[in-house]
């Protein structure tokens, strides 16, 4: 984090590699620590927490929901509690809502006002999620946006766009891909991508051939199917 970590020398103060905001952020930290507004160790602890977050946690929730219908019901009823049940950190947000994609309904998530996102379970949001273009068009042209991400929905699929707030963040449970009946929970979790939990992608197709290639047009297993 510190300037001394740079592996190449450059003139003092001017740092051509980083935007002025970088120096501004570091100077702000120094000021706030000097004023005893925050403690440096608390800032470090927050950094450690932030960099430890990843979509792997959300993927564990989804994989468990795919394999355990009762867990899925608990996840849909209260995602915070379900995360805690698996020993995961649901973060400080008061409400995390899990929604399920089915043959007939597809959910995608946006935060039109800013960038609200279940960061504790998915890691930091991708840049595109915070972009003005996505925030605008996810609402006015959601099917066009999905097509840009490579997802074509059948005309009879209802598309629900969920607008997040700081107090209510969403996690999409994507549809379990066909040909994954023999996979265990860890193998399934590896198929669950970040984008599929935002609702702008399907999970990855299984690498091993378990019944032919899957395409978005092929109806997958029913959402309520028990393996």
């Amino acid at each position: 984090m510190s300037e001394q970590d740079h592996d190449h020398p450059h003139a003092e103060i001017t740092n051509g590699d980083e935007p002025p905001a970088a120096r501004r952020a570091r100077t702000l930290e120094e000021l706030l620590v000097a004023k005893h507004v925050v403690r440096r160790e608390d800032v470090r602890r927050m950094i450690d927490w932030l960099v430890s977050r990843s979509p792997a946690d959300g993927a564990r929730l989804v994989a468990r929901a795919w394999t355990d219908p009762e867990f899925k019901q608990r996840l849909l009823a209260d995602a915070r509690a379900a995360a805690l049940e698996l020993g995961l950190d649901p973060g400080p947000s008061p409400v995390v809502v899990a929604v399920e994609n089915t043959r007939g309904v597809h959910h995608m998530v946006v935060c039109t006002l800013c960038s609200c996102y279940p960061r504790a379970l998915l890691g930091p949001p991708p840049d595109w999620y915070k972009s003005l273009a996505y925030r605008s068009r996810a609402v006015s042209d959601p099917r066009g946006v999905l097509a840009e991400f490579g997802v074509e929905l059948d005309d009879d699929v209802e598309l629900r766009v969920l607008d997040s707030t700081a107090d209510m963040r969403y996690l999409v449970i994507p549809r379990r891909p066909a040909g994954t009946e023999q996979m265990d929970e860890a193998e399934l979790a590896a198929l669950v991508t970040r984008d599929s939990m935002i609702g702008v992608a399907h999970p990855a197709a299984p690498a091993r051939d378990g019944g032919g290639p899957t395409t978005p047009a092929t109806p997958g297993p029913r959402s309520d199917r028990v393996r």
Binding site: E18, D127, W128, S136, S140
Partner: peptide
């Protein structure tokens, strides 16, 4: 921004947060 008139395409380039960005986030957390 919801529905703000635009046909701008969405830049999907992945971006690893820079140290100062993580620091800024952490400052808000602290």
């Amino acid at each position: 921004r919801g529905g703000w008139p635009t046909d701008a395409s969405i830049d999907r380039t992945e971006h690893q947060l820079a140290d100062w960005e993580v620091l800024t986030d952490a400052l808000v957390g602290a």
